[in-house]
Design a protein around this nucleic acid. Structure first.
Lengths: 213, 213
DNA sequence: AGCTGTGAATCCGTTCACAGCA
DNA sequence: TGCTGTGAACGGATTCACAGCT
């Protein structure tokens, strides 16, 4: 299964979300056409994206919602729950700690902060700890993914400690380009970058149209 | 200036951030080489990205930090502040309301929520209002960009009201694909999608390497 | 000599047309 | 017949080599 465009992975996440929604609404059968409308891509795109990983539909018929949902979960690794920790329990970290959306596929197993004033605060029944506890927590609680919610100037050092502790994936909310070894996966979720892009697109509606997006 | 890859815009945002940082540290001169290291792209990429918009450096010498910073601000529309409002003052909306990073280029001019219990709460000296006030606020306070921090199932209806109110740009934190007319710019900042991708990349380090990212 | 700026070449992702199967 | 699955064509983005200034 080599040669998958990385943008395809993002679209798989979207398809999965749509399928989970369809399934919750009791829909049993769908098609590349329907998925493409919901995801706002072409039906070609949907079929091609799926074909990188296998054949999950029935020709002449379509896809069975629970079947395709399960396959996509499997592909994305969302057929199991991942252990997650948050470093940086400022307002953003706290808001994320209480965000209900994690529950489906992720389990919050640790909160860390350098500020002693935060230690002992509790979210979802889990206490905030000193950052020094990170390595042990990662090992003992099977934490695989770390979420960085600290200011930009300490994000790199937090990332370093996460990697030293054995985390293999980092979700980075700080507006910096992290340097990490290639075996560590990083996703940047920098909403300030999104805002900055918005201003450009508002100024250049014509150009944005040409870019399709 | 037609034919700009849309990914180039994201990189310009990164370059700008690096330049602001260099300038704050008193650095006056830089090069495509230095910028490329910080942004983790190639120097070719940096020069090409800039060349879509003009020639801002000096051959044989490099770039003058404040000059290039100003040019990028101009291109991205960040040489002025944008009026911003947040709809959905749950924990995420509240955390964002207090996030200091906005200040440089954005000005929070309104908070809205459907829940009357939230009305009157105040952040940064601005009170939370009923969603019904949105159209008037947009017109009277020059609000250009709206940030959606509501649950997925009400995100589309909030987007509709934002567009009716005259907002031209939407930063969407809800995990849904919004339907908007093409003259409205949307950025999705869905961190759950980022997490879901992470799980895939952790499972497939080999494949991720092939994808470069 | 040195670093930027850019047309041309290459690479990669998306689109397409249609083959394959129910 | 109908919708999926996919090799081939296309187009857009990145890489490159070098021309252009200072």
């Amino acid at each position: 299964m080599a040669k998958v465009p990385s943008a395809a992975i993002s679209r798989l996440v979207t398809y999965l979300r749509i399928l989970e929604d369809l399934e919750a609404r009791g829909v049993n059968r769908t098609s590349s056409e329907q998925l493409s409308e919901e995801a706002q891509v072409t039906a070609f795109q949907v079929r091609k994206d799926l074909s990188y990983f296998g054949s999950y539909g029935t020709r002449g018929v379509g896809y069975t919602v629970p079947v395709l949902r399960r396959e996509l979960q499997q592909i994305l690794g969302l057929n199991r729950r991942w252990g997650l920790c948050i470093v940086g329990m400022g307002r953003l970290g706290q808001a994320l700690a209480d965000y209900p959306g994690f529950d489906e596929h992720f389990d919050l197993r640790g909160f860390f902060d350098i500020d002693p004033a935060k230690h002992g605060l509790s979210f979802r029944g889990v206490a905030v700890e000193a950052l020094e506890h990170l390595p042990r927590a990662v090992a003992e609680r099977r934490i695989e993914v770390g979420l960085i919610a600290v200011p930009a100037d300490s994000a790199q050092s937090v990332a370093d400690r996460m990697i030293d502790s054995g985390l293999r994936g980092i979700l980075n909310f700080a507006p910096v380009v992290l340097e990490v070894p290639k075996e560590v996966a990083v996703e940047n979720v920098d909403f300030l970058a999104g805002l900055s892009r918005l201003s450009f697109f508002i100024l250049n509606p014509r150009l944005r149209e040409e870019m399709i997006g």
